[in-house]
Amino acid sequence: MRIVVAEDTAILRAGLVQLLEDEGHEVVAAVADAELLRAAVAEHGPDIVVSDIRMPPTHTDEGLRAAIELRERQPGLPVLIFSQYVETQYAGRLLAGNAAGVGYLLKERVLDARDFLDALERVAAGGTALDPEVVGQLVGASPSRSTVDALSPREREVLGLMAEGRSNAAIAGLLVVTERAVEKHVANIFLKLQLPVDAADHRRVLAVLRYLG
């Protein structure tokens, strides 16, 4: 894949570039602030963007706001936020409307490079990859839970794992149940959330959007 990386810490930026290039990806630009991120995406048209949240000049939310703007200008542009912080307000905006191709991972909780690379590939393919802490805070901030409250406790558990980007097989392993049981839970989730079979958007992504409110 052709990737733009936005990270203001030089050592971490270099490490990400090395990791991605070792995996066979092409880092077309590695920048240190949000303005350079916007310019790099406009110039290179990458397959995916990997961005931190807090970058110069204020070190608050420049990276996340830039990612939102880029997605608004180019709907469907895959974006993986890789940060130390959870910003629920802007994360909700990033996921709003169409969460396909969105990831949000916390640096301190990614313990294996393979997990990061798997999440990157999943997001680039149009899926989601959300850290459980991000999911928890977004769910807690949701003003309305009526639709999701119709789900059983096990179905909510399965949907939470779907929000993290887990496959049916991975969910089955974590819950120590059969994959067939997970498939039944997923089918019930789609039914209760009234997600049509012929939905143009990926139903797993639509279910995650409902879950996050």
Results as ranks from 00 to 15, higher is better:
residue 186 V to S: 03
residue 87 E to N: 15
residue 115 D to S: 05
residue 150 A to L: 14
residue 153 P to F: 05
residue 126 G to K: 08
residue 129 A to R: 13
residue 69 E to A: 11
residue 179 E to Q: 14
residue 56 P to V: 05
residue 111 L to K: 05
residue 175 L to W: 01
residue 90 Y to S: 10
residue 109 R to V: 11
residue 129 A to G: 11
residue 205 V to F: 10
residue 153 P to C: 07
residue 91 A to P: 15
residue 185 H to W: 14
residue 132 P to D: 13
residue 124 A to D: 12
residue 1 M to C: 09
residue 165 G to Y: 03
residue 136 G to L: 12
residue 96 A to C: 03
residue 77 L to C: 10
residue 201 D to N: 07
residue 49 V to E: 00
residue 68 I to K: 08
residue 142 S to L: 02
residue 67 A to H: 04
residue 64 L to N: 00
residue 127 G to L: 04
residue 186 V to P: 12
residue 117 L to M: 08
residue 165 G to V: 02
residue 108 E to I: 03
residue 62 E to R: 09
residue 132 P to Q: 04
residue 123 V to N: 15
residue 197 V to C: 00
residue 35 E to H: 11
residue 40 A to Y: 05
residue 206 L to S: 08
residue 135 V to F: 04
residue 81 I to G: 02
residue 127 G to C: 12
residue 119 A to K: 13
residue 22 D to A: 07
residue 94 L to W: 02
residue 87 E to L: 13
residue 127 G to R: 01
residue 10 A to M: 14
residue 32 A to W: 02
residue 106 L to C: 09
residue 23 E to T: 13
residue 63 G to H: 02
residue 177 V to L: 15
residue 108 E to T: 10
residue 24 G to Q: 10
residue 209 L to K: 07
residue 17 V to W: 03
residue 189 I to D: 00
residue 13 R to I: 04
residue 189 I to T: 08
residue 83 S to N: 06
residue 185 H to M: 07
residue 210 R to T: 09
residue 121 E to A: 14
residue 74 Q to C: 09
residue 152 S to Q: 08
residue 108 E to N: 06
residue 162 M to D: 01
residue 99 A to F: 03
residue 63 G to W: 01
residue 142 S to K: 07
residue 34 A to I: 10
residue 52 D to P: 09
residue 50 V to R: 01
residue 30 A to T: 09
residue 113 A to I: 04
residue 148 V to F: 06
residue 122 R to M: 11
residue 13 R to E: 10
residue 200 A to H: 06
residue 144 S to F: 11
residue 53 I to S: 01
residue 128 T to I: 14
residue 43 E to G: 08
residue 201 D to C: 02
residue 75 P to E: 04
residue 38 R to K: 10
residue 4 V to P: 00
residue 133 E to Q: 15
residue 19 L to C: 11
residue 177 V to R: 15
residue 42 A to S: 06
residue 31 V to R: 05
residue 4 V to W: 06
residue 146 S to T: 15
residue 209 L to F: 00
residue 141 A to C: 12
residue 203 R to E: 01
residue 90 Y to N: 11
residue 176 V to H: 14
residue 67 A to W: 03
residue 213 G to P: 04
residue 68 I to H: 06
residue 155 E to C: 11
residue 166 R to C: 12
residue 43 E to N: 01
residue 36 L to D: 12
residue 80 L to N: 04
residue 179 E to H: 14
residue 99 A to H: 07
residue 34 A to R: 01
residue 11 I to P: 01
residue 23 E to L: 00
residue 78 P to I: 05
residue 68 I to R: 06
residue 153 P to T: 06
residue 140 G to H: 09
residue 149 D to W: 00
residue 154 R to V: 15
residue 27 V to P: 03
residue 46 P to N: 07
residue 91 A to Q: 12
residue 26 E to H: 03
residue 22 D to T: 13
residue 137 Q to V: 07
residue 182 V to C: 09
residue 72 E to P: 01
residue 148 V to N: 05
residue 32 A to S: 13
residue 95 L to S: 04
residue 5 V to F: 06
residue 210 R to W: 09
residue 207 A to F: 00
residue 78 P to A: 06
residue 63 G to C: 12
residue 195 L to W: 03
residue 14 A to C: 06
residue 20 L to P: 02
residue 184 K to M: 08
residue 165 G to I: 01
residue 133 E to K: 08
residue 200 A to N: 05
residue 61 D to F: 10
residue 101 G to P: 14
residue 89 Q to H: 13
residue 166 R to K: 15
